[in-house]
């Protein structure tokens, strides 16, 4: 902190005494990173915020008029899509955790020499484009495909349609399809941090729990799971944040406007309607909500207390 004061108070670096020049070194080393952040985060964020306060029209041009009214307008018009985004992202995150935890656990503790192969398989989908993979799910979930046929036969579809997740006879173009797509696309971001924290766990701690009268299930609940919480927090964040802003799955696997998420709306407002202020106001809203949710969550999970 005192070094910061030096920098602030110092004149041109060339005139500064040697001790001050030395204290500049950390900042020089930080410079590339700070510059990167400034160019690719601070400037775009400020531009976005200022755009959200523009008014005007596409024909007449937009100018900064500090039009805060864009925000209430965006919230009242797109509250439904905002809510849907967090609902779908939340569902996808929960599903990814349910699928990802056993998978990461198996890779970390049971896979033996297959461990690396399985890890590569988790990452392998990244070698194909996000768009192509999402389109592939269109075929997997198609109306006359095997998945839908079996879900229908087993009565799962009928049950899920009561909750409103699917139609009685189809999955595609329903909320379930969007949630499935989100889960699929962000699963690796769940598995990898989970794996990293489970792999670090000393198996002797589980043995010790067993030695102290904990059944395998209790040992998992009292030792393994609490110690893997940093991975759970990292995984859920890495899944939830991009899922909340996603606009591909709702478009390709869902049916607009019924399954539209906030990302879809922002995409449409920016690129088709060209209502930049409203799009920017929605983007800023999404950003603020996600950051607040994450902050509350991390504080609650108290990850720094874990180690």
């Amino acid at each position: 902190m005192s070094a910061l004061a030096h920098v602030g108070g110092a004149g041109p670096a060339a005139q500064a005494p040697p001790t001050r020049r030395r204290s500049l070194l950390p900042y020089l080393l930080l410079a590339p990173g700070l510059l990167w952040l400034a160019v690719f985060f601070v400037v775009p964020a400020l531009t976005l915020v200022s755009t959200s306060l523009f008014s005007g029209s596409l024909e007449a041009g937009y100018v900064l008029t500090w039009e805060f009214g864009n925000y209430p307008l965006a919230w009242s018009q797109y509250a439904e899509q905002l809510g849907r985004s967090f609902l779908y992202a939340g569902l996808a995150t929960a599903l990814a955790l349910l699928i990802g935890y056993p998978l990461a656990y198996t890779i970390a503790f049971k896979a033996g020499r297959w461990r690396n192969v399985l890890l590569i398989l988790v990452i392998a989908p990244f070698y194909t484009s996000f768009l192509i993979r999402t389109l592939a799910w269109k075929i997997i979930l198609s109306d006359n495909g095997a998945v839908v046929e079996w879900l229908e036969r087993l009565g799962v579809l009928q049950v899920l349609s009561v909750v409103g997740l699917t139609a009685p006879d189809r999955v595609l173009a329903t909320p379930l399809a969007v949630v499935t797509g989100l889960t699929y696309n962000f699963l690796p971001f769940m598995v990898l941090p989970l794996y990293a924290s489970l792999e670090r766990l000393d198996p002797r701690l589980v043995e010790a729990a067993g030695d102290l009268y904990a059944s395998p299930f209790t040992a998992f609940r009292r030792v393994t799971f609490p110690l893997s919480l940093p991975g759970v927090v990292a995984g859920t964040l890495l899944t939830f944040i991009p899922a909340a802003g996603d606009y591909i799955n709702a478009q390709l696997l869902g049916s607009l406007p019924a399954t539209a998420m906030v990302g879809t709306v922002i995409d449409a407002l920016f690129l088709r309607v060209r209502d930049y202020p409203l799009a920017a106001a929605l983007s800023v809203t999404l950003m603020v909500v996600v950051v607040s949710l994450v902050a509350a969550y991390v504080r609650r999970a108290g990850t720094e207390e874990l180690v």
Partner: peptide, 20 residues
């Protein structure tokens, strides 16, 4: 008998104390 049902307790070489 399963380890968690044995009237036996162990002091492990690495202590294996629960860090959390």
């Amino acid at each position: 008998t399963k380890p968690y049902r044995r009237p036996v307790n162990t002091v492990f070489q690495s202590y294996a104390l629960f860090p959390h």
